[in-house]
């Protein structure tokens, strides 16, 4: 009985401690300044704490990652559920799920040694950029999007697709007119969960994004995300600086909770619609 509340109490503890460690400095600096100021000089004699560039960095990277991860993830899911020989599925699905198991540092590393030089050589700029981070994160969120979408598509009653085929639709017409619509909220949940992964990813991003302290203006600009800000500076921070990093965590936490609640709402809706709960 007590054990059952482990997850809930862990969540409560985490929330309490992160907020307690981060809120004071947010109040001191002022919520508006903390979020909308461009100045992050935590170690100056009169330090300033503004995380606007990091918020923009996170948003830019996440948006880019979604474009890649969602399109590839959806494509994989559709191919797996609709156009694939069962034997091929039994090889492809675990292969894609294997991607989820590869440590994020390895993704980041591959990004640094292969992607970054390619971008520098062919697209210009420094190489370490929003684009590189988006590509790496897009690949990383792909398994999440794929496997949840596959589940959502498989939950669509067979009769829907059969009915459509029987009316003379091609397989593709059936897929995009009937199945994707029926699985819509499930796919939405997959996309949002993938988004949560992208916002929250830390190590891979640190390695390829350049960690520059300006708001990025193009996808070839370097940037810094909320997560990388925390991981980079935690090691040597103290006092108000450390508090400010926890405050960064608070902002990240709030964003993630909003995203996840949306995903949960969508997947509940989906389950109810599919008559599964």
């Amino acid at each position: 009985m007590l054990v059952a509340f482990s997850a809930v109490s862990a969540l409560a503890l985490i929330t309490a401690f992160i907020f307690r460690a981060g809120l004071p400095i947010m109040m001191k600096v002022g919520l508006g300044d903390f979020i909308f100021s461009n100045e992050w000089r935590p170690t100056d004699a009169s330090p300033s704490f503004g995380i606007f560039p990091m918020i923009m960095g996170s948003l830019a990277v996440t948006a880019g990652a979604m474009v890649i991860g969602v399109s590839l993830g959806l494509a994989c899911a559709i191919v797996l559920t609709q156009f694939c020989h069962p034997r091929a599925v039994s090889v492809l699905k675990p292969a894609i799920e294997l991607l989820a198991g590869i440590p994020s540092v390895v993704f980041g590393f591959i990004g640094v040694v292969i992607l970054v030089p390619l971008i520098r050589q062919y697209l210009g700029g420094w190489g370490l950029s929003v684009l590189a981070a988006s590509l790496v994160l897009g690949i990383m969120m792909l398994p999440t999007v794929t496997s949840i979408t596959v589940d959502a598509l498989q939950a669509v009653p067979r009769s829907y697709g059969d009915g459509s085929i029987a009316l003379g639709a091609t397989k593709w017409q059936t897929t995009h007119m009937v199945l994707l619509k029926a699985a819509g909220s499930g796919i939405m949940a997959a996309v949002i969960l993938g988004m949560g992964r992208a916002i929250g990813e830390t190590m891979a991003v640190i390695m390829v994004i350049g960690n520059w302290l300006d708001v990025p203006h193009s996808i070839l600009d370097p940037a810094r995300t909320l997560t990388s800000n925390i991981a980079l500076e935690m090691g040597y921070s103290a006092g108000e600086h450390r508090q400010a990093l926890f405050a960064t965590g608070v902002v990240l936490f709030v964003i993630i909770m909003a995203v996840n609640t949306a995903a949960l709402a969508f997947s509940r809706h989906h389950l109810r619609k599919a008559g599964m709960r």
């Binding site: 969960l193 929250g200 990813e201 830390t202 991981a231 965590g249 936490f253 993630i256 909770m257």
Partner: peptide
């Protein structure tokens, strides 16, 4: 809890 990023 499942959705919270590891850095948190």
């Amino acid at each position: 809890l499942a959705g919270i990023p590891s850095i948190i």
